[in-house]
Amino acid sequence: MGCDTPADPRVARLIDANLDRAREGLRVVEDWCRFGLERDDLVKTLKDWRQRLGALHADSYKQARSTATDRGAGLGHPAQLDRRSPRAVVAANCGRVQEALRVLEEYARSSDPTLASEAAVIRYGLYDLEVTCLNASDGLQRRNRLKGCTLCLITSPTDKLLLQVSAALRSGVSMVQYRCKHGDDRERLKEAIAVRDLCRTHGALFIVNDRVDLAMAADADGVHLGQDDIPVDVARSLIGADRLLGLSTHSLREVQGAMEEPVDYIGLGPVFSTAVKPDRAATGTALIEQAMTCTPMPLFAIGGINSSNLSELTAIGCRRIAVIGAIMSASDPSAASLQLLESLSSPRD
């Protein structure tokens, strides 16, 4: 249960300081996992580590404490001011704990081998938990950003792709779905990465249509599937829990089915006739209105939507749309994007 008589009082002070540092850092991470991520599994592990270290925090270490003579007490670093997000705080505190545990391993090895061994076990465990926690933080951030998305741009092949996407992003489009059904995979990957980089520059979500492999290779925020693509549960197992997964639907039955799947958002349509899906009859706005009342998931109306007919959707309270031609075929994609966004944000009549 710890060392009662450390050989060197200076080492005892050092061990005390690093036990405090490790336990405090673990608590910072634990609270984010509890209140931010709501991950009981991570909370349980972190709490166990804290208690195991606490049980080894012997009175002899605490008695050696002397904050008055510690020249390093209270010293800060400018890097601490850059921790502007929970993710940054978690990363910094995981690093802090790992460093403290390494110090405990080195200095307690001869005088308190039980503590040194426990510190090593927890340090290696924290390496893996940190990755899980940071990935979960990314997933939470993506889903929070998704909640604020009102306009999703779905791309179509064009030599001016990057110029048009860039113009839309500068105007405030917050979600881009890369859609390219044909062509060389190497070229598509290169193009997808270029669009991804634009999205990251502007803080927008980047989604890949249909292709899970392309989404993963391009490090996309998620993938969007159609009803005839690979099963949703298979896609989820491939992309993991922290990327977004969207699903196209065309009926109320499919909307209700999506609610039973590990899906983050749905597209519903085509609301109006569209050249992209000429074989599908327009569903009209009534289906959108009905679907919005039965699903809590973000729902994007899609299909033939433009500035001329958008008012039919906003009139029923629809504030999320996905468009292709309204922006990709516009002579001024920036102005087209602004007009759509302004209509979506206007007070409901």
Rank of each mutant, 00 (worst) to 15 (best):
G54V: 05
C149W: 07
R211W: 11
D242S: 04
G304W: 12
V176S: 03
L225I: 01
L268C: 05
D242F: 15
Q63Y: 11
P278I: 07
D82K: 13
M175E: 14
E312T: 04
A235W: 01
K277R: 14
D197L: 02
I15Q: 11
V232F: 15
D48W: 12
A7H: 08
V234N: 14
C94P: 07
V89H: 10
S117I: 10
L225H: 02
V232R: 07
R196K: 03
R211D: 03
T158S: 11
L140D: 06
M328P: 00
L299G: 07
G246E: 06
A55Q: 14
T69V: 13
L162Q: 04
L146D: 06
L42N: 04
H182G: 04
G172F: 01
I230Y: 03
V165S: 12
L225W: 05
L146V: 01
R83K: 12
P6Q: 00
S166Y: 02
R142E: 11
E30M: 08
F300A: 01
A330I: 02
A120F: 12
R243E: 01
L129R: 07
P333N: 03
V212W: 08
R23T: 13
V173H: 09
A258K: 00
R34V: 03
T201V: 03
L238W: 07
G95H: 02
Y178W: 02
A194C: 03
G183F: 09
L81Y: 14
T5K: 00
V173Y: 02
R52F: 07
R39E: 03
D128P: 01
G257E: 13
S308C: 06
E105D: 00
I316P: 02
A281C: 09
A119F: 15
S111P: 01
I266E: 09
S251T: 03
V323F: 10
C152G: 01
D48N: 10
A218T: 10
A235T: 02
D70T: 08
C152I: 13
S273E: 11
T295A: 08
N135H: 02
D159V: 10
R211T: 05
N93S: 07
D228N: 10
C33R: 10
D349F: 00
R13I: 08
A315C: 01
L245Q: 07
D4R: 05
V43C: 12
D213V: 08
Q98G: 10
A79W: 14
C318L: 07
